[in-house]
Simulated assay, not measured.
Amino acid sequence: MTIQYETIPSENSECCRELCNELMVFQKSKAQIRQELFDSMNFETRMIPSIKSALHNHIVVVKDGEKPVGYVYSNISPKETYANDFATFFDLSSVRKHDVGCLSQFYLREEYRKSGIGSRLFEMSMTWLHQFDDVEDYFIFVSNGNSDALEFYKRKGFVFSHEILDGFITVLRNK
Rank of each mutant, 00 (worst) to 15 (best):
T81W: 04
Q35H: 00
R34H: 06
D166K: 11
E11C: 06
H58V: 12
N42I: 03
M41Y: 01
F38A: 00
S115H: 15
L103E: 02
H130F: 09
K28I: 05
K114F: 11
D166W: 09
L172P: 00
R109V: 06
E66T: 08
I48T: 05
D133N: 15
K63P: 00
K28Q: 13
K114N: 14
F158C: 10
F168D: 02
Q105Y: 13
R113P: 00
D133Q: 13
E66G: 03
P49E: 08
K156M: 10
K156R: 11
Y73P: 02
E136V: 04
A149L: 07
T170G: 08
G118S: 06
V100W: 11
S40N: 08
N12C: 11
F43T: 02
S143V: 05
Y71M: 12
L103F: 01
E123D: 11
G101N: 04
V25W: 08
F86R: 15
A149K: 03
I59R: 11
K156H: 08
M41E: 07
V69K: 07
I8C: 13
T7Y: 12
L108Y: 07
M124W: 01
K28P: 00
T7D: 14
R113S: 07
N174S: 13
V171C: 07
M24Y: 04
Y112L: 04
K63C: 11
R113I: 07
D39P: 00
I51N: 02
Y73L: 10
V171L: 05
E11D: 12
V72S: 09
S40H: 04
R109E: 13
V171N: 06
G70K: 14
I8L: 13
M47H: 09
Y107E: 06
M24T: 07
K156W: 02
G101H: 06
N146C: 14
Y73S: 02
L121D: 03
Y71Q: 12
F86H: 13
E110Q: 10
L103T: 01
D85C: 15
V142G: 00
I8S: 14
K30Q: 09
N57K: 05
Y73I: 05
I140R: 03
R46Y: 05
K175D: 11
G101M: 06
L19S: 03
T7G: 05
T127E: 15
N75A: 11
M1W: 05
